[in-house]
Design a protein around this nucleic acid. Structure first.
Lengths: 132, 132
DNA sequence: TGGCTAGTTGAACATTCTCTCATATAGCGT
DNA sequence: ACGCTATATGAGAGAATGTTCAACTAGCCA
């Protein structure tokens, strides 16, 4: 039994009065089963969260969802206070993370928030509380 | 007119055939109105996203929501592969971000995911697609 | 009170990020 | 083809982050 589980064993002893090693192993197994599997979703989730968790990128996505339509880069530029280059980097990252779509129209590029981006923002909006 | 808007002016000329400065100013105003206001929600949103956008903290929150009940620190420790200290830091950050609640019970501490944390994870789950 | 245990906190270092500048690509009009 | 424009890309400097180690607080029990 690895040293990390000593505390768990003591907790379980307190909870149930007594406790055998089998119980601890069982509890441990069920806890482990809750850990997100490595390859599938978590990577994509983490990427999405990391990408959206930046002032510039968050602001851009808010802008896109508030607009409710695709916006040209030149419409985003005057509103977000960083260099053209930074905005381009941000949009590229957002695109890679699956948070915006890209459409070319001549030399113009139009970006639009994806359902995924909107869902995250909606979740935030619906749970933002001043109380609690 | 600031240099950043020159491109927007050209875009609008292309769109509508012609375009006067007033139109540009108007479009700019409406774009600006989409930008999230500084003091209210955005800070809390960004904090939540940044906090959840880290492997350790994400894993912990997934663990808590999958368990569907509060967990003792000593139940989290054996499942997440970083030091006790790192987990404590992580839980502290999550608490500050409003993503977990804390309950003391003697020397044990129990943590549980908040509605906000669950809402974000649900949004991610519901929009994670292999296609597109 | 003294010792043991659960968990927290601070400092420090290594890594990662995010911006800007400079340069590159690509579409359009002449 | 050429020049102009819209946007993208790469490199690099400075800031921010995440982890660990070491020291600390607080609760319990003898």
């Amino acid at each position: 039994m690895c040293p990390q589980t000593e505390r768990l064993e003591r907790l379980m002893s307190e909870e149930s009065g007594e406790c055998c090693e089998t119980d601890v192993a069982e509890r441990l197994d069920s806890l482990r089963s809750y850990r997100p599997e490595t390859p599938a979703g978590p990577d994509a989730d983490l990427t999405a969260l990391k990408t959206l968790g930046n002032d510039t990128r968050y602001t851009i996505v808010r802008l896109l969802t508030a607009a409710g339509r695709e916006l040209c880069v030149c419409e985003i530029n005057p509103v977000v206070d960083v260099s053209d280059s930074a905005i381009s980097h941000a949009l590229s990252d957002l695109h890679d993370a699956g948070l915006v779509t890209r459409r070319k129209d001549g030399t113009w590029r139009h970006y639009e928030a994806t359902d995924r981006a909107e869902a995250i923002l909606t979740a935030l909006d619906e749970t933002r509380r001043t109380d609690r």
